[in-house]
Design a protein around this nucleic acid. Sequence first.
DNA 1: GTGGTCTAGACCACA
DNA 2: GTGGTCTAGACCACA
Lengths: 117, 117, 117, 117
Amino acid sequence: MTMEFTQDKPIYRQIIDSCYARILTGEWRPGERVPSVRELAVAVAVNTHTILKAYEYLQTHEIIVSRRGMGFYLTADAVDKVNATRREEFFNITLPAVAAEMKLLGISVEEVVERMR
Amino acid sequence: MTMEFTQDKPIYRQIIDSCYARILTGEWRPGERVPSVRELAVAVAVNTHTILKAYEYLQTHEIIVSRRGMGFYLTADAVDKVNATRREEFFNITLPAVAAEMKLLGISVEEVVERMR
Amino acid sequence: MTMEFTQDKPIYRQIIDSCYARILTGEWRPGERVPSVRELAVAVAVNTHTILKAYEYLQTHEIIVSRRGMGFYLTADAVDKVNATRREEFFNITLPAVAAEMKLLGISVEEVVERMR
Amino acid sequence: MTMEFTQDKPIYRQIIDSCYARILTGEWRPGERVPSVRELAVAVAVNTHTILKAYEYLQTHEIIVSRRGMGFYLTADAVDKVNATRREEFFNITLPAVAAEMKLLGISVEEVVERMR
DNA sequence: GTGGTCTAGACCACA
DNA sequence: GTGGTCTAGACCACA
């Protein structure tokens, strides 16, 4: 599971995103245990600091909870939370930015729809 | 021409983007002189180094050229260069990322098209 | 590693050249970490910005890459890149200029060859 | 006679070089009048300041002399002077630099000689 | 610790 | 006036 990291986003953000993806695809399921910080650090070949930072973020957003001495677990409504957050971001931030770029470059909605299929 | 800067991108990057916008809208025309480093620095209220950094970026991308003691000038094919670069980025990077996000969140093309109008 | 700087070229250019030399002589090897901006700045007694400017140049020419929080690393094909670039410059720019100068001054190839030994 | 100027050398230096070339090729002959500052400025499409700077350089190096109200004239030994200066520069500065570059890049004298024919 | 951004200010050659 | 280089110093996120 070694990951490729892009230069433009911090690694810990990319790890958060990959956690989101695992949750949304059902690879990680609500209530279940997620890999420990060390396990994940070894798996993606990254410093444990970096994983910890990602997990702390997920914890404050109530996607995961830590159980003393046992590890981190997905919350019951993790999927809904992630879904809601990302949908909101998608419609409020991503989409308007894409629309603005399309306008500036003179790209029509039709052209985009065609390319997306 | 006072500019508002956001926190999420470095100022010099935002200046590059605003130069792109000026070129694409035709406010700056090929072959013509662009504001001097100092002029622009005063206009948008940032340090001259920050403007210079943006201009250096545009210069290595052959959007502008410096003429010693005279200032920076748009290259003849500045518009084409900017357009080509951004279209490429849009179709090769932005759009695939958006498509992946839509798939993950179960958002349909129809829903997006509707929202964009 | 204290460096002597000449007046006729900017310091950051001379640093780029010395990096090239280190790469070509094998002192710096592909994939390995190069001195941090601060280390090198102290070593050659110039401001960190000046080193950074040199490193940024090398980065845009894909000789080195930055790894966030870890430092700069030589790319795998750094040696080839440097060699190719400089050979090209030598044969396409330097040599024709020298030949033109020799012609203008009436200096023969034989004379030059003799002097070079 | 519009000239192409390169970015890496100041224009006034390039003008000096082109004067040298005219002298060495015999286009300008010892004792004869050279174009006035204005004439040359118009001819090569450059500010008169820039031509004046070049002429001042040539004057202090005794390549040309000004005759009050009449213009600038090549000195009697202009050709010898230019020749001597440039030969010296060639053998003491250019050639050693070329030799060093060749050594670094592993280019043999034979290869260079072959390419020069 | 690392790179990266930004400021304030000086000084230079060039046009 | 113009771009360009360099310094000193601060502050940031990231690893």
